[in-house]
């Protein structure tokens, strides 16, 4: 039987999918075509918003890690686990979409031309993939939670590096467009399409984190039950 919390998650999923359909309409039907780049510029809307969603997810990893280290909050640790997975998926999306966009615009070959944004994003990807590996292969329990919290918090140092890389280094990737000095460097129709996509992508990311959180909570419940059963068994053997 479906529990009420699961039903809420399914409703949230339907809302997120509807949001993504509206965003697709804004990207492909409403937003005007870029005069210089042509249709390929429409990659921008999901590419940039995926990166924003990833930053926010990694922020949640930090918040969860701090909650764990400060108050030993298991919920905080669970939030960090859920958000790290979703953040990694959105980083992958931003990364791959960016590389596909770079090919026709810069004729970019990563083996020949260094780019600060690409390199710092690759580091970010490896850091949080490492975080998930720690979670997977460390023996479950408090030491693993503590180690993961530290990795998640320290790894976040790379997020501002990714964000400001286009200002700190002379590089191929264009500078800020939305948070450019003097306001967004976009026509109003493109800005509206961007904002609608941002709402839809953040709703999708939030939904995914909520689903992953629920999965992690069930996993914890099963582990607790298994440990309790083992303790009971050991106690019954000891009393004989």
């Amino acid at each position: 039987m479906t529990e009420p919390e699961d039903r809420r998650l399914y409703a949230l999923t339907a809302l997120a999918l509807a949001g993504m359909l509206v965003a697709a309409g804004m990207i492909f039907l409403y937003a005007p075509q870029d005069a210089l780049q042509g249709p390929v510029q429409r990659i921008f809307y999901l590419h940039v918003n995926s990166a924003i969603a990833a930053y926010i997810c990694f922020g949640m990893v930090v918040a969860g890690g701090v909650a764990y280290l400060w108050k030993e909050s298991v919920r905080g640790d669970r939030l960090a686990r859920a958000a790290a997975t979703v953040g990694l998926v959105f980083t992958t999306n931003a990364f791959v979409m960016g590389m596909i966009w770079a090919k026709p615009i810069w004729n970019w070959d990563p083996s020949k031309t260094w780019d600060a944004r690409v390199t710092s994003t690759a580091v970010l990807w490896v850091v949080y993939a490492g975080y998930l590996l720690v979670r997977r292969f460390a023996t479950p329990g408090r030491p693993a939670m503590r180690l993961a919290a530290v990795v998640g918090i320290v790894g976040f140092v790379d997020v501002p590096v990714v964000h400001f890389s286009v200002q700190w280094w002379r590089t191929l990737h264009p500078g800020p467009v939305i948070d450019a000095a003097g306001g967004p460097a976009l026509p109003p129709e493109m800005l509206l399409a961007f904002m609608v996509t941002m709402v839809a992508v953040l709703l999708l990311a939030g939904t995914l984190v909520a689903i992953r959180y629920r999965i992690e909570a069930r996993r914890d419940e099963l582990e607790d039950r298994a440990v309790a059963a083992q303790l009971e068994l050991a106690a019954s053997h000891g009393s004989r």
Binding site: T92, N93, M97, I100, K103, L204
Partner: peptide
């Protein structure tokens, strides 16, 4: 145009695939 289609096809497969995978996991554990 083909780069645009390639990029969005990848995004739909990755994000959609991850959503479906998560929903299946959620259903299995309930």
């Amino acid at each position: 145009m083909s780069y645009l289609i390639e990029a969005y096809a990848f995004a739909v497969m990755l994000l959609g695939g991850f959503l479906v995978y998560s929903l299946v996991q959620l259903r299995r554990r309930s």
